[in-house]
Amino acid sequence: MAQTTVVTAARPGWVEDGQWDEFQLFVHLSVGAGDRVWKNQPLFDLETVKVRFEVPSPVEGKVLGVYVDDGARVGPNAPIMKIAF
């Protein structure tokens, strides 16, 4: 049976813990449900009022589902997509 992982709007290393809850994030999808992805391939960008950064795939696998629409506003640590590996 395949394992799965949920990729979230995770805090990048340059953001301090206390600041993360203040961010307003917008998601820009690079892949969709059914797409095959490789480890470290960009899955989506998160955009704040000051910066936009890529979130890479933690695993090689297949995108089972996407929980948000492109351009959606999400909160910190919101689930974005599920990948089977």
Rank of each mutant, 00 (worst) to 15 (best):
Q19A: 15
W20P: 07
W20V: 04
D21S: 15
E22S: 15
F23H: 11
F23I: 07
Q24T: 15
Q24E: 12
F26I: 15
H28M: 09
L29T: 13
L29M: 15
L29S: 10
V31W: 00
G32A: 09
G34D: 09
G34W: 01
D35P: 06
D35Q: 02
V37E: 04
V37H: 03
W38I: 06
N40E: 15
N40P: 09
P42G: 11
L43K: 04
F44E: 01
F44Y: 09
F44K: 00
L46C: 01
V49L: 06
V51Y: 00
V51N: 04
R52P: 01
R52S: 14
F53H: 05
F53I: 06
F53P: 04
F53M: 08
V55F: 03
V55S: 03
P56N: 04
S57L: 02
P58M: 07
G61K: 09
K62Y: 05
V63M: 08
V63A: 07
V63C: 05
L64A: 13
G65E: 15
G65N: 12
V66S: 10
V66C: 09
V68K: 06
V68E: 02
D69R: 14
D69Q: 14
D69T: 13
A72N: 11
R73M: 11
V74C: 05
G75M: 14
G75E: 14
P76R: 06
P76K: 03
N77C: 06
N77G: 11
A78N: 04
A78V: 10
P79E: 02
I80T: 04
M81D: 01
M81E: 05
K82E: 15
K82I: 12
I83N: 03
I83C: 10
I83P: 06
